[in-house]
Design a protein around this nucleic acid. Structure first.
Lengths: 221, 221
DNA sequence: TGACATGTCAAACGTTTGTTTGAATCATTT
DNA sequence: AAATGATTCAAACAAACGTTTGACATGTCA
């Protein structure tokens, strides 16, 4: 049995079925969750044998861990943290870029549209892969946002109010995706979001948050 | 086999084990989700026989549906929509009450602390119980919020901006709970939230949202 | 070509799970 | 007290699942 880590470059037929398993796994895990996903269905979609998962990833959980890494890498490749932002850009513009890119990443309809769903599930039921994910991907993203907010508020990066406002910004970005079932039922025309809808939403979140931060009552510190 | 609906009043020993199953079911479903929850574990905690679930609720899914209703009823009994708000209260004060009550409901540490987790899971994987839940509980709650926001913005209740701002408010309320795994790892001191922490968070969300709504750039309409 | 490691395959295994069953117990009514 | 219906119980059932196995195919290097 050969179990390759994600870092190790693969070659030959190995790589082909391995990638197909990652893609199929991402699909199925996103659709029905880890527990309801069956190895048989994943292998069927990957056009591989039932034993392929165990051969390539040790077990079902090993596949899931690698799927999570794979998903995040692909999502940030498709939608970078701050696309097209030069140093020296005013923080308001950076915030808009951050929000817009975040939304696109979450609502991506492309080949790996399952990234968003996968992350949502991981929030509800964090696995061992969560720790690595936070340190490798989410914390760097947070720091960028903290810096933007700190600049807007004219406060230090580690300020409590900066942290709270950053959370307020992100919360609005993830809400439509996390609570899709409720939003859809309450206001059907709000979802699903096309490119124009995403842009409109990004505009609202940005101006809502900017208005808030610029007129927040002063606090000590 | 006797399957009673939630509405039907129960009496005798029937009611006792029935309630114990609902409580145990709420616990277990919240902890590990519908699929990973085993009927055996639920019955063990309810000190009932393995067959009790099938006898009282038909099947596992029947139990889950009733658990959802039970959870929502209890949560709103413990934390009403707008506690202690007289008609004529200024909308700012109503908003604060709404947010605070919402947070207490979500972060309740009491006997049915599983309500929040249960709802989060339902967001990711909506079941048939979702439709009823939205119409019976969530829509009435939304309408109350829409009215408050409309008053603050001085716009009609069905205005697009009112809807968007209401979503922005709610999104902040659910964020800390939905994304607990990430928040905890990013900023450990933010969670878990005690009563004082909840109050502080309610204060931030309210003032952030009020500042935003009062200084939002004007839009057409 | 022969030898060896790598990858694939169909079949089977062992476990876990929701559910069923039929007898036993309890409560209520006649 | 007898009878009837409701409820509980231990045991067993049947299906689905992740995993293992050993045979077979494929590619590579001597």
């Amino acid at each position: 049995m050969r179990i390759k880590s994600a870092a190790e470059p693969a070659a030959g037929h190995h790589a082909a079925t391995r990638t197909q398993l990652l893609e199929a796994g991402g699909e199925v895990f996103a659709e029905v969750g880890f527990r309801d996903a069956t190895v048989r269905e994943i292998c069927r979609r990957a056009q591989a044998n039932v034993a392929a998962v165990n051969y390539h990833f040790g077990d079902k959980e090993g596949l899931y861990t690698e799927v999570l890494r794979y998903a995040h890498v692909k999502a940030f490749e498709a939608h970078p943290l701050l696309p097209g932002v030069e140093p020296g850009t005013p923080p308001e513009k950076k915030l808009r870029a951050f929000v817009h890119s975040f939304l696109r990443r979450v609502f991506d309809k492309g080949s790996s549209s399952w990234h968003g769903k996968l992350m949502s599930r991981e929030m509800i039921e964090p696995t061992a892969a969560m720790d690595a994910l936070v340190e490798e991907r989410i914390r760097p993203m947070s720091i960028v946002l903290w810096q933007i907010v700190a600049e807007i508020l004219a406060r230090p990066v580690n300020d409590e109010q900066v942290r709270q406002c950053a959370f307020s910004v992100v919360s609005q970005c993830v809400f439509y995706h996390h609570c899709r079932p409720v939003v859809t039922r309450l206001n059907p025309k709000h979802l699903p979001l096309d490119a124009a809808g995403i842009e409109r939403l990004a505009e609202h979140i940005t101006s809502f948050s900017l208005a808030a931060m610029k007129h927040l009552p002063a606090v000590k510190g």
